[in-house]
Amino acid sequence: MTVQTDIAAPPSKMTVSDTHVAIEIRKMNKWYGSFHVLRDIDLKVMQGERIVIAGPSGSGKSTLIRCINRLEEHQEGDIIVDGIELTNDLRRIDEVRREVGMVFQHFNLFPHLTVLQNLTLAPIWVRGMPKAEAEATAMQYLERVKIPEQANKFPGQLSGGQQQRVAIARSLCMNPKIMLFDEPTSALDPEMIKEVLDVMVHLAEEGMTMICVTHEMGFARQVANRVIFMDQGQIIEQDEPEKFFSNPQHERTKLFLSQILH
């Protein structure tokens, strides 16, 4: 499970703000029908934090981060993202979504558009950016994820790792303040995981506020400043990665770690 990524020392830019709250979740509850999927979630994310959420499947990790950009609706409690409280107000939801990027397990690129069109679509249609400017920005981000030569191909012609890097670049083109990653490497072949994690590490180095649902514990150790463990819809334990891995407190956490770290 551990993947080595090629950075030497923790860069200076990876600093957590003391004053700027990026996301605040208070006493949040969510049900799917009668199933209580998220229970009393309290979470405060400061600007610049890199949080990894781990936990068994069905523990509500994905649902939690999908609530942050309102792909899922919560029934109780408050979610405040970048100072905007998420309610049923569609304008606020759109505002939040403009500031929060999301990367999915299955990439969810738009297969009928070229890579470049995938990247420029939202800047043009949501931000009203002129096409030429959007394309220039898109090419910059494609270079950052190291696939500028694929700009005019269709997603179906790329490998899984390349597709996921395009998906990351697509989110970055909206210049988000927060990035959510929903198991970004789970659908990838082992040989392609590293190329995606490298991009994510670089993003962290640049000071992006990130929340990652992932099973890549190597990535968590290297990049995260906080690891959250969830089970049965609640936060069981959270700590700095060093302490989390070496000295887990809760029995459930110990069991989980013993299962995944061989």
């Binding site: 792909l71 759109d94 979504r97 403009r98 999915f104 299955h106 939202a122 249609w125 949501v126």
Partner: peptide, 21 residues
């Protein structure tokens, strides 16, 4: 697939634009 709606929504496209584009 639902992922197409979600990806579009996550990028901030509203329902009309999601449908049309």
């Amino acid at each position: 697939p639902r992922g197409q709606y979600e990806a579009s929504a996550a990028l901030g496209l509203n329902k009309v634009k999601t449908m049309g584009l």
